[in-house]
Design a binder for these strands. Structure first.
Lengths: 265, 265
DNA sequence: AACGTGAAAACTGTATACGAATATTTTGTG
DNA sequence: CACAAAATATTCGTATACAGTTTTCACGTT
């Protein structure tokens, strides 16, 4: 059984239990509380946590009926959750179940372009708006990230970077811009999945965040914008390298491909 | 009854029929073709087209059962479509049906900021990518717009401008960017509703589009970006003026407000 | 033994139904 | 006549059922 530390920090329901009985019990107890967020929402969060924790095999088929029985509900909530995950980009709907998205290379490049438009402005606004609390949270996340990097704990580093990013993004006062940036979080995650695989990228990431935090601290909007812009560029470079490596890997043993080919949109 | 020319030009299913029978017939025939895009997908597209065309009243309540009966299907496809639209930001889910997202003054200003980030790049890419067909469509739309302006037909001018805008946006090769721009169509619509009320704005709009088309024709990406940026700024100015006028109007007769009050987000 | 054909299984999409929550209207009372 | 409380109505979320479609597997033929 996996440890609970793998739970997504953003998940309201931080449980990673595996057995049907446990899930049923948890859902029951949660719905017994005064706040009923809906069964499908809970399933959605649990599945998203699993996906983000890499607990879903790339060739695993998530079927609504199976998910439904696992959580002790009917097909509808499970189907809603799966379809919502699919729409958010966490899953892809095939004729035979839901699978991890075959990441479209072209789309990732497009989103890098978009992020270069949005995130510098977002960081600049955040620099002028970050609260002291937010600063300490960012700092804590960065310390955790650095520690995880030194310990070689890829997973923890991943989490820390996510917290860091969420920290400053939540300080963006322009709510619409914030939502726009957050909308591409899934793609950011997908890219991270690839780039984090190479430990050589870890120092770049941590250093980038460090510089960003320093700019934030100085309330230097210009520097923050520059930093994040460079960060996105660096991310693109790292992604391209990882993509190329995956391509080679793919051609060598086409049986188990790390990255599937293009998806016709 | 609305005329058919109001159909969304970007909709795959370019029908804007209103009666239940027509919709049923259309769905039936579509599903009879070899490509089954699913009923809920079709409903989704139709509703999105309506929203983007401003055919949905701001205080209209879209209820799944009503949509279902309108399209002659059960609640499930309608519900899927509505929830998907809500998730995409085109609708807002309330305890009593789905409604258009109530955009408040602050949010409109935020979205102007966002559009200044996105649309110049989009226009620049479109300038490099527009086909000859698209050019003639843009030109036709512009001619219609000018004619409507001279005839003082506000509604037709509105439509022509919408077609023009959709025309070049659909030529943006970066699909993700295109979707991002289109996501704020409702805001654009709301702003237009206000700014078009004042005929003094009409020449500004038509001239702006004319200049944009000229830049497109020259494949001048820089000029196109500049043009659209200025266009957004002008739109903001016009909106602010209209907003101020509406504020005065509102305080005079608070019974019928042009823009609803702020929404706690 | 390889390949094509057919049947069974699995999965999805949609239809219908029911319970729960919430808004609205009606009714009763001060 | 105003206000509160209950009844009503509307809508959502979920459950269950059914039909269509695709995949897979097994069997028979060449």
């Amino acid at each position: 059984m996996r440890s609970l530390e793998h739970c997504a920090p953003h998940s309201v329901y931080g449980f990673g239990s595996e057995t049907e009985e446990e899930n049923i019990a948890i859902l029951k107890s949660a719905s017994a509380s005064n706040a009923p967020p809906g069964t499908s929402v809970q399933i959605h969060d649990v599945l998203m946590a699993r996906i983000q924790n890499g607990e879903v095999d790339p060739q695993e088929r998530l079927v609504d009926t199976a998910v439904a029985t696992e959580f002790g509900v009917s097909r509808m909530p499970a189907r809603d959750a799966l379809m919502r995950l699919a729409h958010e980009g966490y899953l892809e709907q095939t004729t035979k179940g839901f699978v991890l998205p075959r990441i479209d290379h072209q789309e990732i490049l497009e989103i890098f372009d978009l992020r270069r438009l949005l995130e510098p402005r977002a960081a600049a606004l955040a620099a002028q708006n970050l609260s002291e609390d937010a600063f300490s949270n960012l700092e804590a996340a960065l310390i955790n990230a650095r520690r995880a990097m030194k310990a070689g704990e890829r997973e923890k580093l991943f989490r820390a970077c996510e917290i860091f990013r969420n920290g400053w993004i939540n300080a963006v006062p322009n709510i619409s811009l914030r939502k726009a940036v957050q909308r591409y979080m899934t793609q950011v995650q997908a890219v991270r999945m690839m780039t984090f695989a190479d430990p050589a990228n870890h120092p770049v990431i941590v250093d980038g965040n460090t510089g960003l935090l320093q700019a934030f601290r100085r309330r230097d909007a210009v520097a923050a914008a520059d930093r994040i812009l460079r960060f996105v560029f660096d991310g693109e470079s790292a992604y391209l390298a990882a993509h190329a490596a995956a391509e080679v890997n793919q051609s060598n043993n086409p049986g188990q491909r790390l990255l599937p080919g293009k998806t016709p949109r």
